[in-house]
Write a protein that binds this DNA or RNA. Structure first.
Lengths: 300, 300
DNA sequence: CACCATTGTTTAGTTTTTCTAATCTGATAT
DNA sequence: ATATCAGATTAGAAAAACTAAACAATGGTG
């Protein structure tokens, strides 16, 4: 097969030489490289040995480049410059690029959006883009991902955000009109069902079973999106299941009220996942959100 | 003071990444770099961590460059190419450049030249230039230097070549005409004296003193150059001092004959000194000459 | 003129980096 | 299904790089 396309001496030696040549001083070079002059001396000596020619004339006081050294120096400078340019561009691009966080429309509107607004006040330099998508898979270019489901074990990219309880809700008008007293009553009232194609939503059926009731809840309307379902509930369409914490604000404002004093622990938890990038900014946002979830467990 | 002008990640990581990107394969890269795939994996991972962004998409089978990776790759390639160019030029220049060996005209004509001709037969790829100069100081650009004098102690650039004895010589005609029987006889015959401005030549006076004779040798002619002196001797101008070994050939052909069966050990030795370059070619010639001096101590 | 401050070198030993061996993972091809 | 392939991961080994200290050579200073 092809031999090494660049038959270069050790790069560390080249870097030491370049610095020494630029400063015309081993001492200065060593300061720049955060090493002792001895280290630079070693590297340059090794390079000279490898190339089989002197790169510096050792003068009484300091060093002077030989002709060969000068020749090498300009090439190295150009080379390093080129590389540094590329790295610089990369860093700048990373700096300018926003952090992309993906969440379902429900999480986004009920929890994430208001917090991102606050995050931006703390970190005006970090641009954040929300990617609202009611699917489990992450699209390309997503840095963070808030999932509801079973958190993969021993993945250091996933961190639990919060768990929740599931309760029954309705608009005050609906609640008053049907006055549900027990689980059986739900069989004869309009329920809002979610078509759970991809997410792990808990259905009315599952919810009741968890609470020990075996009846069948068939009445009501089906919608595809939890936010739509919430709006439907507020429009007096019927009863809806909801997360206790996530709907706290809606209950506080009286838009919805809890029906029956029963609840189940949500079968899954919300967790945050790091994807693609391990950049500073991403970690910052992730840690901020984790702290946020921890700091206000009751969503005050 | 100024920060590092090139704020580059570890160069070894860049080199590993470049190879991996070029092959689009950690495995191939590892073969090129003579390391295991694990090593490449480590380096790339470290680089990604440092830059805070993924450089490869890890696919089910192998890897693919990310956009960022591709961007970095072209810069690195250009950079390495630039550097390799410089190194290449340097090596080529060193390869093409002849080895320069400096010697006095005497050593050159009596010992070195014929040997260099033989060296060239053994090593036709190594070009050798003679720099004949009857001074002690080496001029710039000289790689090897044959000196006569006191060899500096503990210098690993100097190697003893040979010592010699000093005898009195003359052309057969002169020898017969004056028939010198003892040291005193030299006082009344034409002597050839060397103006020793710089070299450590032994004068007739010193020679005789070493042999225990206190007379004064004033008669004769003065010349500046030993080769001229030798020619003068062959032209029957007078008696001359010479090295036993170096003049062997002249005596063999009958051009000169030894006068009086006395001789002194030369006060100094011939030694060879390495200057400037420590290139392969220089070492080769030096070692060859040392072996030559050792192999034929009698100058057969 | 002695003496100190500079700059680079050298040696030997330590620290850091880099690499390997072995084991895993996850997915494709047979 | 099973083998295979490319890469990841881990802990520990090997190699490279570095440092400390003593040295050498020189130039400036009191």
């Amino acid at each position: 097969m092809a031999k090494r396309p660049y038959d270069l001496p050790p790069l560390s030696a080249l870097a030491s030489f370049e610095a020494a040549a630029r400063h015309v001083s081993f001492k200065e070079a060593s300061r720049e490289l955060n090493v002792t002059p001895a280290a630079v001396s070693h590297q340059v000596k090794a390079l000279e040995a490898e190339l089989g020619q002197l790169l510096f004339h050792r003068k009484q006081r300091g060093v002077v480049l030989t002709e060969a050294g000068a020749l090498l120096f300009v090439s190295l400078q150009r080379g390093f410059e080129e590389m540094a340019d590329g790295v610089q561009r990369l860093k700048r691009a990373a700096h300018d690029a926003p952090v992309v966080i993906q969440a379902t429309s429900a999480v986004s509107s009920l929890w994430l959006t208001s917090r991102l607004a606050r995050f931006w006040k703390d970190h005006p330099d970090i641009q954040v883009t929300q990617h609202v998508m009611d699917k489990v898979e992450a699209s390309d270019g997503v840095d963070l991902l808030i999932n509801y489901g079973e958190m993969p074990a021993n993945s250091q990219n996933c961190f639990p955000l919060f768990g929740d309880r599931i309760i029954a809700l309705a608009s005050p008008a609906v609640a008053e009109k049907y006055s549900v007293r027990n689980l059986e009553d739900f069989e004869n009232v309009p329920l809002i069902h979610l078509n759970d194609n991809l997410l792990n939503w808990t259905s009315w059926q599952e919810w009741a079973e968890r609470l020990g009731y075996q009846g069948s809840y068939r009445r009501g309307t089906f919608v595809d999106n939890y936010i739509v379902a919430l709006h439907a509930a507020q429009d007096d369409i019927g009863f809806i299941l909801g997360w206790e914490k996530l709907t706290r604000q809606l209950r506080k404002t009286g838009a919805l009220v809890q029906v029956l004093e029963v609840s189940i622990e949500a079968p899954h938890i919300y967790y945050i996942e790091t994807r693609n990038s391990s950049s500073e900014k991403v970690s910052k946002l992730r840690d901020w959100l984790l702290a946020e979830a921890k700091a206000s467990p009751d969503f005050n």
